[in-house]
Design a protein around this nucleic acid. Structure first.
Lengths: 160, 160
DNA sequence: ATTAATCCTATCGTTATGGTAGGGTATTTT
DNA sequence: AAAATACCCTACCATAACGATAGGATTAAT
């Protein structure tokens, strides 16, 4: 169970637009450069995001992308599902031959709970929240960059 | 983002063993028949579960499988990870070139939250819980089986 | 020895993933 | 008008994962 690069790159691209658009358009070229993602590959993700109505594009010279809505109005599960498809689906929804089995139903309920749990993380946050977090992290990195790194106990990651 | 058949079948197999072993061994053949899964295919999942120390097997005629531990001592995330691999991993954990970027860290934190959410569903339930649920559902099905089908409000599935 | 069970390994077709590429279309700038 | 710029559409490709099947090897009871 992994998160695809499409979802990761796409999420980063959305954040990048939210951060770098000052009301204007953001260039694919610039997103690709900042995020260190192949421009050609990122195009696909932008297409998916556009088809899902999360960004709008303008063509031609000095075209580019911008968010279709206010960052506070774009939930992260929308971004995720645009790139990754429906969250944690179990296919057996309308397969009566399988779903009539009580034990199958029990495990199916479990998978539904898993899907809900994911949605409750991504569905309660917006791009504005992510942007806020980004700015906080960036700020902290600036005034406490002295080389000492605190490590989070459970994840083993650098923290702060 | 889908849950693989391996995980679904394997979880059902574990539940099947929990339900049908009366202290003794459960035959692969019987699990496969009850769960309507190809015996040959289910073998693979049993191998994974055995290698993860969740079931033990006895070979030879009148061999079979049984749970390695008490059902109450087998967490569902253990089963899941045995079949599906580590939950919602992001690969960039020790890739410093990527992780030194503040914005990447922000999205990475998000994926970690997603993983935690999944773990908090599967890690707080045991096979004994699932078995209990199964028996409750089975019980309800027996004394209210009059052809009318109740539909679950949120999932839209038949409950009964 | 026969039988019945798990075990190991290989194979196979299909789909998904990650990524590249060529050429087309729209728009601005010169 | 033409060049430049930027998005857009479609195809392709290599690899890996997925779902499933199969042959034969072990192990142990009868």
């Amino acid at each position: 169970m992994k998160i695809s690069t499409r979802a990761r790159y796409g999420m980063r691209a959305m954040l990048d637009i939210a951060v770098h658009s000052d009301g204007g358009l953001v260039l694919l070229k610039d997103i690709a450069a900042r995020q260190e993602i192949s421009k050609r590959y990122l195009e696909h993700m932008m297409t998916q995001l556009r088809n899902s109505g999360l960004v709008v594009s303008e063509r031609g010279a000095s075209g580019g992308y911008r968010l279709a809505r206010d960052p506070g109005d774009i939930r992260l599960d929308e971004i995720f599902e645009a790139l990754e498809g429906e969250i944690a689906v179990v296919e057996c929804i309308r397969d009566a031959a399988i779903c009539s089995r009580a034990d199958e139903c029990v495990t199916r309920d479990l998978w539904c709970e898993v899907a809900s749990a994911i949605r409750s993380v991504l569905g309660t946050k917006t791009l504005a929240d992510l942007k806020k977090r980004y700015e906080r992290v960036k700020e902290q990195g600036r005034d406490s960059g002295r080389g000492d790194v605190r490590v989070h106990s459970s994840t083993g990651r650098a923290v702060k």
